[in-house]
Design a protein around this nucleic acid. Sequence first.
DNA 1: GCGATCAGCT
DNA 2: CACAGCTGATCGC
Length: 434
Amino acid sequence: MEIGLISVDRWTQGSQVYFLTHLHSDHTQGLSSTWARGPLFCSRLTAKLLPFKFPDLNLSLLRVLEIDSWQYVSLISPSSGDKTIVEVMAIDAHHCPGAIMLLFRGEFGCLLYTGDFRWETSSERAKAGRTTLIEALKDDVVDILYMDNTFCNPSFAFPSRQVAAQQVVDIIASHPNHDIIIGIDSLGKEELLLHISCVFNIKIWVWPERLQTMHLLGFHDIFTTKTSLTRVRAVPRYSFSIDTLEGLNMIRPTIGIMPSGLPWVVRPHKRDDNLFGSLLTSRYNRSKWSDGDKPNDNLGSVERFHKYIYSVPYSDHSCFMEIEEFIKLVQPTNIKGIVSSSSCYVDPLYYFGRLCAGNQPSLRLHYRPERKVEGKRSVAVPTKSNIVSSNFTETNRKRKRAAKLNFLGFHASKVNALRRVQRGAKIAQSECSC
DNA sequence: GCGATCAGCT
DNA sequence: CACAGCTGATCGC
């Protein structure tokens, strides 16, 4: 087979069927309301949310995958022109609502695509996923594991979301008279907000579109768009910055909490006073603390980045140890990372080649997957879109936009309220050799 | 005017 | 460069 039997989180031409693991924008780049390239498979929850992100989407192209059950898809083998059956199972990825992993079986072998995933070894949900996976793989070997390698580096160590949620609660409890701002995305971190709501018996403010999402997710009484009802507000992460918090503190005492697995990446250069790249780099900000305010250096614990901002290791991606546990369970013959846009991209085989069934040698520490089709037996080019960056222009234009924040602490633009910019991640299946 | 894409920024 | 995603500019229609 030459190119494109199946695409996962990739929306360019050339495949017969397309799969969406979850609705984050970097996985839907190229997907739009005018989608017509073929059937689109996703979880039931994603299918429910999809029309709100893409209002004019042709729903007749949607195919719902039930979790933990095999579905059979009839395709045409590009090499022979004959009919071929692909089996696919969706497994809860524990990443954000509706997020799934995809297990494929076909003439190309057995492939597991994790999408973005969190593999908390302790949680009940993960135990269920583990059981499903063991059962599904009992007579099979995963030839290639396409894996979320976001935090595939031993330096990423953080606790379960349950523990991190308690850290958030502790911060809020220690600021009884402060307003609280929490940075979140269009999907994800709901359980954290639920926990806060439950512990303090208060509603959580969200912006209007997010409230609609919450309603679609089945949360009807916990969230509100009325600021007068609560001191805890979840705001879009992109509008969460030091500037935002300093502005808010001119009105009333406010602290910001950023739930993220990322802050423990060290950024090499100084830039400006904004939290560039979403709150990275404790090293940089460390210089800005007064001596009495220094954070501790323990990984996976709460860090105080700034007078008004705390970072909590609440991550929807697996930490290194969880990735290791996952690979030990799956024992794939080969592994490919699906997140390649980072300059710190690390080939999972560097750390985990020894765990593969074929005992792959530890390869180069850093490599960038080629965008073109690779060797004969390799099946896919699973990269998470933007490999841009090769010419990183070092222009230091600092046209700082006037911070047009409203009093809620986020940028409000009605002009583009309906705008739906897509990004994308993907798998592209390019071979089955037969 | 609209959608798609890109640069720039958080 | 970045867990994800907004905003504004430009281009083709």
